[in-house]
Every structure is written in C-alpha cells, then in structure tokens.
Computed example of a mutant assay.
Amino acid sequence: MRERRAAREQGARTVVKVGSSSLTTAAGGLDAERLDALVDALAAARAGGEHLVLVSSGAIAAALAPLGLAARPGDLAHQQAAASVGQGLLIARYTASFARYGIRVGQVLLTGEDMAQAGRYDNARRTLDALLALGVLPVVNENDTVATDEIRFGDNDRLAALVAGLVRADRLVLLSDVDGVYDADPRLPGSRRIAEVRTGRELDGLDVSFPGSGLGSGGMATKIAAARTATEAGITVRVTAASRVADALADRPCGTLFHARDTRPSGDFGHAPTAGSAEFIGMVEEVTGRTGITLSDHFHDIGGTSLHAMRICARLRKETGIPFLPQDLFESASLAEFLAGRGQRADGLTGDARHAA
C-alpha cells in the first residue's frame, strides 16, 4: 500500500465515463475523430500527472454497422453477440489511439457480481491498482457478453460511480451528448443549465425523463443517480458534454458540478468508540437505519455490497469519526458479522495509516 500512497501523492485519481452516443455514429460504428479527440484530452491530463481510469460504453453500438444491424438489438442474446464483436473493435481502437502518446491501455470487463461479492470486489480493486501502478490506463466496461438482467449494472453511469469508489478516486467526470443537467429538456427554449449542485435541493422537482440518443442504455436520470452515489463517498462529480472533456479535466467551469459530501467527522469525538461496543453499535444502527438497512441484512441479498457500503461508510466516517472504507465491510457478510469482531482492526486508525497499512 505504500507504493499506492506514493502514487496518489503525485496526482489525483480521476474516473472518466463516456457514453455510446459520444463515440459512435448515428448509424452505428465507431467515430474515429471523436474517439481520438477524447484520447487527446485524456493523454494531456495524464501528462499533467493525473491518474486516469476510463469507463467506456460503446461496444454494442460499435458493432451495429459491421453486423449490418439497423438499430440496437432488443433481445439479450443479440445484445451480447453485438457486444462480443464490438468490444474487440472498441479496445483495438483505444489501443491504437493511445499508442500515439506511448500510453498502454488494459481492458477490464466487470459484471454486477464483481462489485457485489467481497472476494471478487477485492480482486477487481487489486487489478486496477496494479494497472495504475504500472502506468497502464484501464479501460473499463460492463461484461455484456455474459451479464444477465439479474447481475447487470444497467448502465455505465452507475458502473462508473462504483469504480470511482473502488479505486478511491478524487473525482468522477460523466461525459454526455448534453452539456450538463438542465431544469427541463435542453432542446426546449427557456431551459436552464444547473451549474452546481451542493445539497441536492437544486434538483427538487426536476424532470429528467426526456429521451436520449437511443444508442446507449443511460440518460440524464442515471447520471444524476450516479453522481449522488459518488458524492456520498466524498467524490466530486462533473456532468458535461464529451466535447468539453478537456475543460472538465482542467477544472474549468463547464457542465454541472456536484460537490462531494463532506465525509469528515461532524464533531470532536476525542477518541473513536471501540468497534463492537454498545456506543458504537448504537451509532451504526442510527446511521444505517436511515438507509433502510439493518445489522442482520446480508449484503448480497440487499443488492450488492458496493453501492450500500459506499453510502454506509461515508455516513460512518462523518458521524462516528472512524475512517471506514467499503473494504472494511466487504470482509463480512453483514454489519452484524462486521461488528462481531472483524471491525476491531479499524479502531484508532487514521485514513493515512490505513493507506500505509
């Protein structure tokens, strides 16, 4: 972990997610010019010391024209067949484009189970950490060739938020064909872009049900949900157009900026309560009660550890003063098991001490 800590001191970790509509033509197939423009911006950020992970959609859309398909298939079998063809085309194009800058890429394909089961989650984290330590830029996508409805992420916006938590990113950039979150359909006159979201109240009553491009599976609603997930874990999120990626990576004003939730302890605790003590269990019950989760709920049965653990840990860090990370919970099947003994190792450790452990 010392090597990883040293790497983080040299530059921020950023996860960038790009959607299908930003990489492909309307008829299907990769748009080389737009993909190269994205790579140009990412390579410039890397040259400035940024540690990047790219979550890229586009596999299915990339295969439409080569397979002679007029539109995205509606059935799972043909979606998976298209993904099998398109994923190879997508990673080959990224490999060639990044090679212009001497940057190696590594393909990482994930399913929902990789983020929901403790051992597989830890394995994915180790792989991504190793790739970054080796100077490789990971290109992540959902493994659509084997994913089923029961284990799908559903969209790569959610996947990107979970990957940002997985690699302990500092920020997440969600690229779209729309320059940010609007208070109405941005195609309508009078619609207004929301520049910043600090508390979430800025989005009260917002209607984001307007249709997207049809090439991908996400939309503005999924980006807002992903932003909320990431900000709960203390990660800053920016939603903007793919054409503004250079501005987003340089922190120039563009799109919609979601401020990270403050995950620092909200009070002076003097000392962290002992994991497993009545005081600590009471704190945990109060925090998790607001998420609708009880101590006895099995993580896998409530929809996967990653999403829930990110939210729980953010609240625990803020309200108990103990620097929990999602991995602390993933080693147990439930909060009850965690509190019964495995949480003891978190006592008294600061965030820096945990990174160095």
Rank of each mutant, 00 (worst) to 15 (best):
L206W: 07
A233V: 13
R244N: 15
G212N: 13
L215T: 09
G234R: 11
T240I: 07
R228C: 09
R228Y: 06
G216H: 03
I224P: 07
A242Y: 13
L203E: 03
T236E: 15
I224C: 01
G219L: 06
S217E: 14
T240V: 07
F210D: 05
L206K: 00
K223F: 02
A226T: 03
L203H: 01
T222L: 08
A221W: 01
L206I: 15
A233D: 13
A221F: 00
G219T: 10
A241F: 00
A221S: 12
R238K: 00
A226N: 05
R244H: 14
A230F: 03
T229L: 15
A241Y: 02
E232S: 14
V208D: 15
F210S: 08
V237K: 11
V237Q: 10
E232L: 10
V208E: 14
V208M: 15
P211K: 06
P211Y: 01
V208Q: 14
F210P: 02
A246Y: 02
G205N: 09
G216P: 04
A221G: 05
G218M: 04
A221K: 14
L215W: 06
G234I: 05
A227M: 11
R228L: 12
M220K: 08
G214M: 07
G216Q: 05
A230Y: 09
I224D: 00
G219A: 07
P211G: 03
T240A: 14
D207M: 05
A242C: 13
M220W: 06
T229A: 09
G212W: 13
D207A: 02
R228F: 04
G234W: 08
P211N: 04
L206F: 05
M220E: 04
V208P: 10
E232V: 02
T231I: 06
V239P: 02
M220H: 08
T236A: 13
S217Q: 13
F210G: 14
G212Y: 10
T222H: 11
G205P: 06
A233T: 12
I235D: 13
A246I: 04
G219P: 10
R238C: 05
V245K: 03
I224Q: 02
G214H: 10
A226W: 07
P211L: 01
G214A: 10
M220Q: 06
T240K: 07
L203G: 02
A226C: 03
V239M: 07
G214N: 14
S213I: 06
T240P: 04
K223Y: 03
G205A: 02
D247I: 00
F210T: 06
D204N: 09
S217F: 12
L206Y: 05
R244G: 00
V245Y: 00
V239R: 09
M220F: 08
A225M: 11
